[in-house]
């Protein structure tokens, strides 16, 4: 423990990037941002993030195209990706899964659902100012799932 995790959020909406910053603020991680897939690739190469939160529909380069390029890059192909999108079509989910996305979250989502999925991939330890007595990282079982997630998986 003790290693600050780096998360890259790639979304053309500043609103979503602000939401993500707020959600992860209590945890010992740094968030960097990009507004489309092209910027996202550049930031990923520079920052070497531990996790990428990737929107599907974006101008310039969409999330699937970015994911494809990530997988072709020897230095970045192992970077875990969670897709985050308003559109929950089966085709989109299948395309993301084929390219190795670790998970898929439909907007709107509960903060706890995103944190739960992220915690399956990276340790989420509270920032020192928020430390609890146990100082244990969050685990997936300590968080709840929302009904959208259940709905999607049950299809």
């Amino acid at each position: 423990m003790g290693t600050t995790q780096k998360i890259l959020s790639v979304d053309d909406s500043k609103t979503v990037r602000r939401m993500l910053a707020r959600i992860f603020e209590p945890f010992d991680c740094t968030l960097c941002e990009a507004a489309n897939g092209e910027e996202g690739l550049a930031r990923a190469a520079l920052e070497k993030p531990d996790l990428i939160l990737l929107d599907y529909n974006m101008p310039v380069m969409d999330g699937i195209a970015m994911l494809q390029r990530l997988r072709e890059d020897a230095a970045l192909r192992q970077t875990p990706v969670i897709m985050l999108t308003a559109e929950a079509g089966a085709k989109n989910i299948a395309a993301a899964a084929r390219l190795g996305a670790r998970d898929y979250i439909t907007k709107p989502f509960q903060d706890e659902v995103l944190l739960s999925k992220a915690a399956r991939i990276i340790p989420l330890v509270p920032r020192p100012a928020h430390q609890t007595a146990t100082d244990q990282p969050l685990t997936p079982s300590s968080l709840t799932r929302n009904h959208h997630d259940h709905e999607r998986r049950s299809r």
């Binding site: 909406s13 500043k14 609103t15 979503v16 999108t85 308003a86 559109e87 929950a88 079509g89 439909t106 907007k107 709107p108």
Partner: peptide, 22 residues
């Protein structure tokens, strides 16, 4: 920020409507 927020709200609502229609 307000324009972006308005767009994202509409985007999320449309996404849920799309799921309902599907």
């Amino acid at each position: 920020e307000l324009l972006d927020l308005a767009g994202e709200l509409c985007n999320m609502i449309a996404g849920r409507i799309g799921a309902g229609l599907a």
